[in-house]
């Protein structure tokens, strides 16, 4: 290996690491707020990328029908609950978010022929389809079990992951897709060639991380989420709805997931089941951080990205094995540093 290759691998690793960092942040966020280990995060990555790819191929993405269907189902369930509780005031809100919004998105997609639109509009439409699925998934799968143990929530996550992967296969087929890059530019830094897309990924990740930081530090909703993460009961007593917190954190996670997918789609071919492995690598990073610390998770993600790109050079067949074995020393360290009998909830 010479310097040239090392730089190339390093660049690759950092780009992937940036994506894993975003996913790890979302996973830590969701776990802290809802105690859900969000295995389906990866499916949002794949949905984001493949929805965009479908637009560019001039097709109507199947995720649109999922959005309409899930919205109708949520509306139906919530309407029944609202009517039974005599709280008819909720109906307007339900209709707006679960029926009108998806219908507007569907109308735009069918009317605009997104294949001819500029990239920015395509990305915006893809996000408009995939992101609302986050809170809907929370409403349908997790909210009825919000008080269940971490273990039950984890099993639900696995079930949601299975269902979404199956739907992904149904919508997008078994073939992978790539999208057109955000920028074709190339820069030469000494011997190293940097692609425009690389800069896009790094830039977007940095912007998102700063935005999240601001959101949690400065805004009322961000603080509400942090409060829920620290103490659910306490937050509730202060008037913070844990349902709102759950939906909001899932919206953020879905947004981060879909955007990550859109960012990597020009670099690697995305298949319907790609998201799972990508998401799991975000997980490895999150576990390194013990599912609590955001900066550690980001650092862990870069480590995972570098490890992955260098091991793909040295032992490409075993690259997944190496990455997933990384959590073993982390677990050793964690199990040696924690030594009290804790009472499970």
């Amino acid at each position: 290996m010479d310097l040239q290759i090392a730089l190339l691998l390093g660049q690759d690793g950092i780009v992937n690491g940036a994506i894993y960092a975003l996913l790890a942040l979302a996973l830590v966020l969701v776990f802290a707020v809802t105690r859900v280990i969000f295995i389906p995060q990866g499916e949002f990555v794949a949905y984001g990328a493949l929805t965009l790819a479908a637009f560019q191929a001039g097709k109507t993405p199947g995720t649109l029908w999922l959005l309409l269907g899930a919205g109708a189902l949520v509306a139906l369930i919530d309407t029944v609950i609202a009517v039974r509780a005599g709280a008819l005031g909720r109906l307007k809100r339900i209709a707006l978010w679960d029926l009108v919004l998806p219908a507007v998105v569907a109308g735009l997609v069918l009317w605009l022929e997104p294949g001819d639109l500029p990239l920015v509009a395509q990305v915006a439409l893809s996000l408009a389809i995939v992101v609302p699925l986050g809170p809907m998934v929370y409403r349908l799968a997790y909210q009825p079990l919000a008080e269940a143990s971490v273990l039950v929530l984890l099993i639900v996550s696995v079930a949601v992951h299975l269902a979404l992967v199956g739907l992904g296969l149904l919508f997008f087929g078994a073939e992978g897709s790539r999208t057109t890059p955000f920028s074709e530019a190339q820069f030469n830094l000494g011997t190293l060639t940097v692609n425009g897309q690389t800069l896009w990924v790094l830039g977007a990740s940095a912007v998102l991380i700063v935005a999240l930081y601001q959101f949690f530090g400065r805004t009322l909703y961000g603080k509400a989420l942090r409060a829920t993460a620290i103490n659910r009961v306490g937050a509730r007593l202060m008037g913070i709805s844990t349902t709102m917190a759950g939906k909001l954190s899932f919206t953020l996670a879905a947004g981060i997931g879909a955007l990550s997918g859109i960012l990597i789609a020009p670099i690697t071919t995305v298949y319907y089941d790609t998201g799972f492995l990508v998401g799991l690598k975000g997980f490895v990073a999150a576990i390194i951080a013990g599912l609590v610390s955001y900066p550690l998770a980001a650092a862990g993600a870069i480590l995972v990205g570098l490890l992955e790109s260098f091991s793909s050079f040295w032992a490409s067949a075993f690259k997944e094995v190496i990455v997933f074995t990384l959590i073993i020393p982390v677990l050793v360290w964690r199990s040696l540093t924690s030594h009290h009998v804790e009472e499970e909830e």
Binding site: S149, L280, V321, I327, V332, S338, E344
Partner: peptide, 21 residues
């Protein structure tokens, strides 16, 4: 040995990584 002394969700996560590897 690695995971059982940690909180409940480390075993399942550890076994996911192990199953994949």
């Amino acid at each position: 040995f690695l995971t059982l002394r940690l909180s409940g969700h480390y075993l399942p996560l550890g076994t996911i990584a192990w199953g994949l590897s």
